[in-house]
Amino acid sequence: MKSYKLIFTGPPGAGKTTAISVLSDTPVIVTEAKATKRDPSHQHKQTITVGLDYGIIKLSSQEKIHLYGTPGQERFDFMWDILTEGGIGLILLIDNVRTDPLEDMRFFLKSFADFIKKTKVAIGVTRMDISSTPKIVDYHQALSLFNLNPPVFDVDARSKKDVSLLMQALLYSLDPGLNEN
């Protein structure tokens, strides 16, 4: 049995757990806790992830892709280096409704800089239906300072089509020579 891992990261409430669930073949294993009133970033949802999210895409009986979602809160960032070890790529989800989404993106790009250098990143901006700014082009502008040009898509984490397209773009970034069929 060969297995590989794909990492989902992003600030609290960006849609990591949701995105993993729409792709996973098995029910996602999450360690969630009731969100407390003290944390304003969680006003729109009932639960927060305190451990890793975990889902699986089975390619064959011999091959599995493990989907890991990091907990959104920064107090868990000690786990990130170990987690990314051997991973094939990074999906970064950014919640466009938060106070400074571009700063969120910068924070995660810095935190995962080594991993991104070794692999590739694809960025999904979620909840753009609620807040349309910053625009996608603003993200690209901010990215140019990092010398990065990854795909940045408007993604609804609840939409399998959106999440799948982002994932496909990640794969093509890793190898443009892949075939469509």
Partner: peptide, 12 residues
Amino acid sequence: KRSLFQRFLARL
């Protein structure tokens, strides 16, 4: 990892 990516892509 092309062949792996290829299978993953086909699946998606």
